[in-house]
Simulated scan of single mutants.
Amino acid sequence: MPPLTPPKSGDALFASVDRVNAELFTLTYGAMVRQLLTDLEEVEEVNKQLDQMGYNIGTRLVDEFLAKSNVSRCVDFKETADVIAKLGFKMFLGVTANVTNWDAEGTSCSFVLEDNPLVDFVELPDTCQGLQYCNVLSGVIRGALEMVSMKTEVTWVRDMLRGDDAYEMRVKLIKQVPEEYPYKDDD
């Protein structure tokens, strides 16, 4: 068996990923959220749609992350959360998150972002105060973790667009789904 390749650093991963201009991405995301508000009219429906879009993205991004990062299998949820915070966020958004507020069981934590490129140029009007503008990120995390056999619940706790001092997502491991490999009888 060949030796394991050490994982790349977050900076090396960020440099190795093809990306579009950050401002273009931010403006495009904002236009998409605005169109969803126009089409769906209900803020709660927009929140659900953003989460579902993120979930779909996360189920696909995990393959690229695993292929480019050379990360070996994480031993538990704590290690997985640290990899997401230090490598995943850096690879795809160019920022890192802090993992904090672990519960006693090690099944629930917070990702705290002090910088969030999705919100450049954004100011929420009073009519959109219930909007979880970055809900796509919680969906991405949920979808990516589900692809590595972890069913989670991800909720926003703090949001700088609402006057908080940081962006904080609470991630709770609901259950670890054992991987099943089909058994083939060679008889």
Results as ranks from 00 to 15, higher is better:
Pro2Trp: 04
Pro2Tyr: 01
Pro2Leu: 11
Pro3Asp: 14
Pro3Thr: 06
Leu4Thr: 07
Thr5Glu: 07
Thr5Tyr: 06
Pro6Lys: 10
Ser9Leu: 11
Ala12Pro: 05
Leu13Glu: 04
Phe14Ala: 15
Phe14Arg: 12
Ala15Gln: 12
Ala15Thr: 15
Val17Phe: 13
Arg19Ser: 11
Arg19Thr: 06
Arg19Asn: 09
Val20His: 08
Ala22Asp: 12
Phe25Gly: 08
Phe25Ser: 09
Leu27Asp: 12
Thr28Leu: 13
Thr28Asn: 08
Tyr29Ser: 05
Ala31Lys: 08
Ala31Glu: 11
Met32Gly: 02
Met32Cys: 06
Met32Lys: 05
Met32Pro: 00
Val33Gly: 00
Gln35Gly: 11
Leu36Met: 15
Asp39Thr: 15
Asp39Lys: 07
Asp39Gln: 14
Glu41Asn: 04
Glu42Val: 07
Glu45Gly: 01
Val46Ser: 06
Lys48Pro: 05
Gln49Phe: 07
Asp51Leu: 12
Gly54Phe: 00
Gly54Val: 06
Thr59Glu: 06
Thr59Ala: 00
Val62Thr: 08
Asp63Gly: 02
Glu64Met: 10
Glu64Arg: 08
Phe65Thr: 02
Leu66Thr: 11
Leu66Ala: 13
Lys68His: 14
Lys68Cys: 12
Lys68Gly: 14
Ser69Cys: 10
Arg73Asn: 02
Cys74Asp: 10
Asp76Pro: 13
Phe77Val: 04
Lys78Asn: 03
Glu79Val: 12
Glu79Cys: 09
Thr80Glu: 10
Ala81Asp: 05
Asp82Cys: 03
Ala85Gly: 13
Phe89Leu: 11
Lys90His: 11
Phe92Cys: 09
Gly94Phe: 08
Asn98Trp: 06
Asn98Pro: 04
Asn101Glu: 12
Asp103Thr: 04
Asp103Tyr: 09
Asp103Cys: 03
Ser108Arg: 15
Ser110Lys: 03
Phe111Tyr: 14
Asp115Lys: 15
Pro117Asp: 02
Pro117Met: 01
Phe121Gly: 01
Leu124Asn: 01
Cys128Phe: 09
Cys134Pro: 06
Cys134Met: 07
Cys134Thr: 13
Asn135Phe: 03
Val136Gly: 02
Leu137Trp: 00
Leu137Gln: 07
Ser138Lys: 07
Val140Thr: 06
Gly143Pro: 01
Gly143Met: 00
Ala144Asn: 03
Met147Trp: 01
Met147Asn: 08
Val148Gly: 00
Val148Trp: 05
Ser149Cys: 14
Met150Lys: 08
Thr152Phe: 07
Thr152Ile: 02
Val154Gln: 08
Val154Trp: 05
Val154Arg: 02
Val157Gly: 03
Leu161Arg: 04
Gly163Glu: 05
Asp165Ala: 11
Ala166Gln: 09
Tyr167Lys: 04
Tyr167Pro: 01
Glu168Pro: 00
Arg170Lys: 12
Arg170Gly: 03
Arg170Met: 14
Val171Lys: 04
Lys172Asn: 10
Lys172Val: 13
Ile174Pro: 10
Gln176Arg: 15
Gln176Asn: 07
Val177Gln: 13
Pro178Ala: 12
Glu180Trp: 09
Tyr181Ser: 14
Pro182Met: 08
Lys184Asn: 11
Lys184Ala: 09
Asp186Cys: 08
Asp186His: 12
Asp187Pro: 11
